[in-house]
Structure formats: structure tokens, C-alpha cells
Design a binder for these strands. Structure first.
Lengths: 204, 204
DNA sequence: AATTGTAACCTATCAGTGATAGCTCATCGG
DNA sequence: CCGATGAGCTATCACTGATAGGTTACAATT
């Protein structure tokens, strides 16, 4: 009970957060290569070079590890969207955001998969919001903000929520379906993207 | 090599296809109750009253069993959509179809998940399309048909394809996202559905 | 009537999974 | 020098999907 709580004066070889990040990077790569279902904790531990039970010093369980990978993927999308959001305004910004969102999904299907298509289990603690959900809120927030800016103050927040969620869902739908059903006889992709964006923004 | 191939004159206690159906029904109930990930082959076999390996006489593996359950669910979707398609025409028919599609997704999330959200592994036989994909194609076909009817013969088939796929993707997006991110602070569901349908059909 | 074939099912067992218990060992403050 | 702590290990658990190979009952053939 001396409670020095030191532990930060280490030799900098990097064990604590650095190792955690190392685990996440290997996990992300493995998941991208083989799919989330096919990656076991043993494979991840093996890639990192530690024993499988050692993972449980960094994550309470497999689910939490996957969710952490998920959050990392979200960060990348949010970065891209934030940049795009600054280049234009109004309807053009909405369209650019939508196009950036779709392109991110098509070019980084694995990140997108982990971020939006993998279902996170109900957290045991009802008070604790799962981190990927929070990150999802931020991505959605960017769409909602751009929409609110464009529509002006005449709409109610509830109305804006519904419109933004409808828009977001439609964008997600195209990416998710084309990822999950790549063998479907889709229309030519770029034309389909433009048709989709055009349809989603008419009437706004 | 006498090849009588009889085996159909049994005492009618019902082993062959009836038992298969019995397995599917129990599996569907268990999946609905506990979710697809939480149901094991042993639990299904136990519910049916046979041993776990016996399942493998009816299905080559767990995946095929799950897919069969999902196809059963899709039959219902296609049935509902076919009925709905006959009750109205034009834009109203499109709206009714969309609503039926969304409601199916929300009420049978496991079937929807298996049918549209789980990525089916590349079939070993290139000629063989996974059954759930076929069922999904039929559901899409109903949308496309209704859209083509409404738009009339002035549009090119490619244009109709793009519009139908955009529409389908948007419907899918709302269901998939709400299933995968159920804890997101969604707008009130029925209002969101109506907003979504309204937005998707404006301008058609 | 005896034999054969087959459908339906079983037990035993496999390798692989997520997770836990409890130990070892190096480092560092006192 | 010594105890505490951090970081890792091995061994093991209950459970999973899947396979191998045997058992039983019944129908058709001989």
C-alpha cells in the first residue's frame, strides 16, 4: 500500500501500450487477410511472438480485442472524412463526403468490414458503451453536421436525425452489399456510385 | 448392383426429408432465441433428439445447415413480397415492397444476417451459387421488376439496373446498419422507415 | 428361411477454440 | 539484499465442428 504507482520509468524497450498497439496491428493484418471469423487468439499471439494467454493481459477477451481493431479502422475513415469536409460546403460537401465514404469502403474493404459490418456483441456492462459504437457516432456526426449546415435551422433536430441516418444507411448499404456480394452482377461501379449519390441528394 | 433403389416404402414414421425439416425448424427456433453464433450443432441435435454427428447425414457441415435455415426464411420474404406486389401498382407498389423488405429484416434479423450480411466463402465449384445468394437475387428481382414497371419503357436496362441496385442497396443499408449497430441512438424506428422510403422514392 | 444391403443412428475421438489458474523470472525501490 | 511488481510462461479447462467406424432394424433378394 505504498502506492508509488511508478511503472513509467522503464527502459523504453516498450512493453505497455506499445505492445498493445503491436497486437492490434498484427490482429488487423490477420483479419484483413483471413477474415475475422478465421483468426484465432492463438494465431494473433503467434504473429506477435507471445503466448496466447498473454493477450488477456491487454484485452479482457477476444471480443474486446476485435473491437479495438474496429476502433482503429474508424480512426482512418474519420480522418479522411474530416479532410474532405473542409474542401467544400452545402450540397457539394454532402456529395463529396458521400463519395469519400463510398471510396473508402471500396478501397479499404477490410477496414470497412471491421468498422461497420462486424457485429459487436452486447456489452456485459450496460453502462459501458462499446468503443466502436462511439467511433461510429463520430463518423455519423460528420454526415449529420454537413446535412444540418446545408438544410439550415428550419428543420427540427429529430428531422435532421432521420434524414442523416437515412442518408448514412444508404451509403453504407451500397458498400456493404458490394463487399458482401461481390459476385452479384453489379452495374459498372463508378456509374453506380454517381447514380446512387445523385438519387440520395435529390430533394435535399 | 441390383439397383432397386426402393427406400420409399417405409412405415411412414418419417425419417428422410421430414427429419431434415424437423432439424431446420428446431435450428431456426434456437437461432431466433439465442442468435446464430450462440447455437452449436450439439444444441440443435439435442433439441431434435438425435446425436450431434447425425446432423452430418443431412447437412455436409454447420454452414450448410445455417444456410438452409436462411433459405427457409427467405422463402417467406419472397412470399410476402410477391403478395404485396399484387396489391398495388406504380410508386405505391415500390413503397409497399420496400416496407415489406425492411420489416422482414427487422423481424428476422438472423435470417437477414445470414442471407445478406454474412460473406459467403467463394464456392469451390465456380458454377455453384450459394443458395442464400440465389434467394437474395429473387428478392432483388422483385424490386427491379416493380421499378421497371413504374418507370416505363423509356429507360435503358442499364439505367434501370443502376436505379434498382441503388434502391436495393439503400434498403439493405438501413436494415444491415440497424442490425449491426443496434445500440446506436437511432431515431424512432417507424418514423425512420417512413422517412427512408419517402427519400428513396422521391424523384422516381 | 437365410443372406445381403442399406438407411438411420450411435459412441468414441480428433484437432482447434476462448479462457483461466498458477508458476517463473527479471527489474527496481527500499 | 529483499520483497513487490510487471510481463510472460506452461498446463489445463470446457466446449466447438467434424470424422471414423461400428450397430441396429428392416426390406429385398436368393
Amino acid at each position: 500500500m505504498t502506492s508509488t504507482k511508478a511503472s513509467s520509468r522503464r527502459k523504453a524497450k516498450g512493453y505497455g501500450p506499445e505492445r498493445r498497439a503491436e497486437i492490434l496491428n498484427h490482429a488487423m493484418r490477420l483479419i484483413s487477410e483471413h477474415g475475422v471469423q478465421m483468426v484465432s487468439t492463438r494465431q494473433i499471439a503467434n504473429a506477435v511472438g507471445i503466448s496466447q494467454p498473454s493477450l488477456y493481459a491487454y484485452f479482457p477477451n477476444r471480443q474486446a480485442l476485435i473491437e479495438a481493431v474496429c476502433v482503429q479502422a474508424f480512426e482512418r475513415l474519420i480522418l479522411v472524412m474530416t479532410e474532405v469536409a473542409q474542401t467544400s460546403t452545402g450540397l457539394n460537401r454532402l456529395k463529396s463526403l458521400g463519395r469519400a465514404y463510398l471510396m473508402f469502403g471500396f478501397e479499404q474493404p477490410d477496414a470497412y468490414r471491421v468498422g461497420f459490418m462486424i457485429e459487436t456483441a452486447e456489452p456485459l456492462d450496460i453502462n459501458q458503451i462499446a468503443p466502436p459504437l462511439l467511433a461510429g457516432l463520430r463518423a455519423y456526426g460528420l454526415h449529420r453536421q454537413a446535412l444540418a449546415d446545408h438544410l439550415g435551422p428550419s428543420r427540427t433536430p429529430d428531422e435532421i436525425d432521420r434524414l442523416a441516418q437515412s442518408l448514412w444507411a444508404s451509403l453504407h448499404g451500397l458498400v456493404a452489399l458490394m463487399i458482401a456480394r461481390g459476385r452479384f452482377p453489379w452495374a459498372e461501379r463508378d456509374a453506380l456510385i454517381e447514380t446512387h449519390l445523385e438519387r440520395l441528394l435529390t430533394g435535399l
